[in-house]
Structures are given as structure tokens and as C-alpha cells.
Design a protein around this nucleic acid. Sequence first.
DNA 1: CTATGTTTTTAGACTAATCTAAAAATAATT
DNA 2: AATTATTTTTAGATTAGTCTAAAAACATAG
Lengths: 220, 220
Amino acid sequence: MFSFTEENYLKAIFKLSQRDGGSEVSTNGIAEELATKAASVTDMLRKLSEKGLVNYEKYKGVTLTPAGRYVAVTIIRKHRLWEVFLCNKLKFRWDEVHEVAEQLEHIQSDLLIDRLDEFLGYPQNDPHGDPIPNKKGEFPKELQICVADAKVGVKYTISGASDEDTNFLKYLDKLEITLGLPFEVEERFEFDGSMSVKISGKRTLQISKEVAQHLFVTKV
Amino acid sequence: MFSFTEENYLKAIFKLSQRDGGSEVSTNGIAEELATKAASVTDMLRKLSEKGLVNYEKYKGVTLTPAGRYVAVTIIRKHRLWEVFLCNKLKFRWDEVHEVAEQLEHIQSDLLIDRLDEFLGYPQNDPHGDPIPNKKGEFPKELQICVADAKVGVKYTISGASDEDTNFLKYLDKLEITLGLPFEVEERFEFDGSMSVKISGKRTLQISKEVAQHLFVTKV
DNA sequence: CTATGTTTTTAGACTAATCTAAAAATAATT
DNA sequence: AATTATTTTTAGATTAGTCTAAAAACATAG
């Protein structure tokens, strides 16, 4: 479907995007991550953009489209499942797995990954403790933590919300709080449990204790 | 070490060489095997020759050097071990394994293959019954049959000899019968158990019943 | 707001692997 | 042995991915 190289670019963009709180990723950043040159990155970004995998405008950085994100997350899923296999079944040490998993993650076969997942007992985390996304590209619920429990200054991604109350979801809609957005707690006010949070690394807003208790985030 | 493409060429040459009784492999044959064009094959043969992996002279076909053969056999070893893994551990059907094994065979990691071999219990055959060479590139003894039991007209490779008698081995040396040479029985003489055999598809010679009973070959 | 510095993009070239079309060598047939 | 047919090689072009060097855009400091 996609070349080895394209997959590595998408993975790098996803990784940097997570690290920097989900905003645009720079050409130089990708170049450094992949140990290549900025000129090569520019070429590839144009190509990925034409294929609908990234949103790219000259000089303005790049983000993944949903399609691109799905490809990246699938590579991560494969990488982490292979790491579990290497450690749990083949007795690799945790520091020996990465290099081999970098190769195995590009093997193309949905059946293989489904069966491997099953064979390993549907693990939720890789040997380093990183979460393993499911087939749909979703990271496991288990890793979500309640915003009320989130730490100040740590980077998260908004990953869930209690769906018991329709009005609550409508409220989030109105504030333009949607899944996948970068999230960080700026300050917590103990007297009423409310907090000041930053969304997408830009907008700062106040949320009540009630909202914090029904919103979930995932560590990035 | 070697590129995906180089490995596939070496594997194809090995396969054709086995099929045709170990003699030179033709450019067109390789092209057909790899679904490519003769011109591409010529280019690659020159490259592989420069790397010391094949013996190549223009218009005269190609054979593997010991180094090239080792690479090819290692790929086959990896391919067949992965097939066993897919069938025995991941419950693939025997007809589903080939395509995936074609990808997995190119993963570079000696540790991975050693551990996989161990994990699978050192299998001797893949799910299709084909023999799995060991780490040194040797095919399992179990598949060797005694020349005395070899069938007329079937293609074999000389793969072993009884090492109890030093004089016997010296005798083989003198006749230039060495491991890896193509071998075929032309005629069997029942009255004394001797036979007329063809070595390397060229030399025809007579061997006694005693020699036939101590020399082993592998079906190609 | 101009000058300087950094980042990003363009232009042009390189490598590995491939292709088509034509030339050269070998093999087969009369 | 000469002609025809087949196989193989050469020549030159193409694609994906990469690079260097230079130009263009953007960011920052005075």
C-alpha cells in the first residue's frame, strides 16, 4: 500500500506531533528525527500531501490527516505487538527489541497482525509500557486518566469523555473540545476543584470540577 | 548487508540451479522467475559478480559462489522457519503462508532467527515438507538418502559421506566428488549393485556398491 | 522598518533498480 | 557454411528517494 519510506515519514510526523502537543510539525524536525536532510523532507511532504495523508502548506508545517494518522498508528501498533512477541516469546531483552521491530513493523498482512495480537493475548502495553492501539487505531481506554487526576505541565491528548450525559457532550462541542486535541493543565485551583487548561497549545480556558471529572486524556 | 532485491536474485538463482540439476542458470530463466526483464537481470548479475556472490561470464550463464549460496540458503532458512511459525503458532493455513514469508525472510537479525528456531523446537521441515537448512547452511541429514537407494533419473545434490573410513574420503577426493555437486543415477546394474552416475550434469562415472552405500544425496 | 539570521524550498545531480528498443552473440536449421 | 531464430547484452530513459548548494520566505533584533 505505502512504501517503507512513506510509512517512516508518517510515523515520525505522528511522534513529533505527539511530543509537541499536536501542533504543526516542522520540516527540520522531521529531518532530524529521520536523520535526513530538510530538502528530502520537503519532497516527501509534497508527495504525502498529494496522497491525502498530510495537510501541508509551504512554509507552514505539516499535520496528519485522519488517513495519515491511521497509517501511522497502525505502524505503531505493529511495532509494539512485535516488541511484545520478541520479549515474551523469544526472550529478547527489552533493549534488544527496537531495531528488529523497526523492520517487522513494515510487514504487510492484516491477518498476520490480527493473529499475532490474538497469539499474544491482546496485550495493552509493549515491553516499555507504551500503549498498543487496537485495530481501529484507538489507544486503550485503560491508559486514559481523568482530567481531574492529570498533572500540571504534562502533555496529554484528549481521548475520551463520559457519554452518559448528552448535555455534557454538547457542552464540549460548544467549547470546541474534540478528541485528539493536545491538552495540558496550567493550574489547578484546590478551593473549588476547577482548573485552567490549555487546548492545542494555544487556547486557555477554565473548566469546572464536574467537567474535569468526566473528561479523559491520554499521556503523549 | 544485502538489499532486498539482491537477496531475491540469489534465491532465484539457487532455486533454478537446484531445479536444473545445479548447472548454469540462464538470464531469461531468472527474468521469468522474478517476473522482470532480461536486461534488468544482466545488470544485476554484473553487480552480484562484482560482489563475489556469483560466477558470471557474459553469455555463459551464472552460478552461485559459496558466499552467494550461503546467502541464498540463509534466506530459504528464514523463509521456511517463518512458515512454520505462521502455521504452528498463528494457525495460518498452509496456502496462506507463502506471501507473508516472502516478506519476513528479509528481516535482518541473526538473534531473531536463532531464537525463532529455538522457539519452534528446531523444526526440520516447513509446512510443505521442504527441508530447513541449519545456521551453517546445511540441509538436514534426515533428508539425505543413500546413493544405493537413489532413483534413476531423479536430480540430487551430493550432501554427505560416511566419515568412518578415511580412505573412502580420500577416494572421493581423488574422483573430485565434493559436497554440493549435482548428482544423478543414469543406470543401476543389479548383478553387482554398481551404478553409472552423472556428476555436475557432465562427467559420467562408475561407482561400486560399496561406494553407493556410503555416499549420501539430497533430493533437489 | 530595515538588516540579519534561521528555516524552508527549489534546482539540479546522484544511485539503485527498472524498463524499452536496438545491437551483438549464440544456437538452430537448412 | 550460411541463414534464421533465439538469447543476451548494451544504450539510454524512468522512478523513488536522496543529496548539495543556492534562492526564497519567514522570524527577530536593533
